[in-house]
Design a protein around this nucleic acid. Structure first.
Lengths: 251, 251
DNA sequence: ACAAAAGTGTTGTAATTACACCCATGC
DNA sequence: GCATGGGTGTAATTACAACACTTTTGT
């Protein structure tokens, strides 16, 4: 038998949210080598136990991703997110040499959540922050820049043909707020009038609550009607963004 | 520190091809427990080595998938496929208890290839076969039925908005042959006239070679023109399959 | 001759875009 | 008043589905 080395499995998360109208990603500052002091995606080793503990004590991959998020930010099923957290598997990265500590396979997850306060207390979480994705200058640790890019690509294309944009918003929202999500993720302006019509006429994307905004905040204009997310998950037909130079992306 | 158990990483492949007009998947019959005698996706453990061997001796995930395919079928970069093999990562499966031998994380890949002969010689490969996906009655080993379903879903939707259907065909093909690929993967009839027009007018999907078929084989009809795959990878606009029914909603 | 199949024409309908426009609201 | 912005109207363009049709081949 060949000399096999231990393979380590980590679960990392590309958590995206919208703060102040622009797209932010959750990053943590590494406290120890390798890449000490550099920004990295939140994540950690998959918890496994000795086999006699039984399968029920093991941790599912998605559960591990959820735990990491919770540990870093309190972004759990409870709390302010209240079930409005979208979590999906992104891809798995296992190139040799991507982690100097050994052979590490990383299963990356992608998360969308409504606007969140800064992560405050909570152990190592002191170093976690939301950072605007277009204000990211220092290089990320490991191959996390690549993973983040893949996550952004996936987010951009998922907004085209799914109703997932609503997971960036609270339980009630206006069409202009929904449009702001698209503009933040796509980094492109979306035509207000046509967007409104397309969204409300796409069956099951949004449904009106009957209420309107209370005014305030904005400079002027009438009060916008309130909507909640509909039951549809897939958009027929999709919302295509104006730029045609999309890269091939999964699903 | 918690009692951590060894985590094992396998790479499995959902290899699809079209034989005799219907979609087939490559399966191997397991020679040992667990699930002895059952059909399973081809795959195996990721090769890792002691760390002093250096990263260059480690095996990338995609390389592992390619090696598995080659070992089982000779479906390599050389051979009859000659660079016409499409391979992409599908998803990673790590639910506790999915493998009775321990904690196993499986990175699944999805492969498309032109029509291949039956895998013949080659060690363990004696038990490998192409099986029509709609003639699959006995349950697959592990959670491979789920993985296969995910791969089929991915294949079906990838044909809508990418030009990957051509990877099921040889270097030259006719539009009706390309249509047969769509019909086999989607299990639906595609309107011949409209399909032809859409495909040849979609920029970069196919380009004519100038030749035509030599006749023979078919029952009648004129000779079809030959095409080769174009440079485009994404289809603008996509080919939507008819069965994608809309979400039910009020007006 | 006949049937099967490749490829083209045509037409009504739906979706998309790009405008203009009305009007409620904040300053 | 006046700018801002939500929401609607409308027309030109494009994409699409369904159908008929012509032509070329094998039997």
């Amino acid at each position: 038998m060949d000399p096999y080395a231990q393979t380590l499995v980590t679960v990392d998360v590309v958590a995206l949210t919208i703060r102040g109208g622009s797209l932010h990603v959750l990053l943590v500052r590494r406290a120890e080598p390798p890449f000490e002091g550099r920004w990295a995606l939140p994540g950690g080793f998959l918890r496994t136990f000795l086999s006699d503990a039984g399968p029920e004590r093991e941790e599912d991959l998605e559960a591990a991703a959820r735990r990491e998020l919770e540990e870093e930010t309190g972004l759990s099923g409870a709390g302010p997110v209240r079930g409005r957290l979208h979590l999906e598997q992104l891809a798995t990265y296992g190139a040799p040499g991507r982690d100097p500590r050994g052979r590490v396979i990383t299963v990356a997850y992608l998360a969308f959540s409504p606007e969140m306060p800064d992560p405050r207390a909570g152990g190592d979480a002191a170093a976690a922050t939301w950072i605007a994705v277009d204000a990211l200058d220092p290089p990320l640790a490991f191959d996390h820049a690549r993973i983040l890019d893949d996550g952004l690509d996936r987010a951009r294309s998922k907004l085209e043909y799914t109703s997932l944009a609503t997971t960036f918003l609270g339980p009630e929202f206006t069409i202009p707020e929904l449009r702001a999500v698209y503009e933040a993720v796509w980094s492109e302006e979306v035509h207000a009038g046509n967007f409104h019509r397309k969204v409300v006429s796409a069956g099951g994307f949004v449904e009106p609550t009957g209420g309107t905004t209370a005014g305030g905040g904005r400079l002027g204009g009438p009060r916008a009607r309130l909507y909640r997310a509909g039951r549809a998950t897939l958009l027929h037909p999709p919302l295509l963004r104006p730029s045609r130079d999309r890269q091939p992306e999964d699903r």
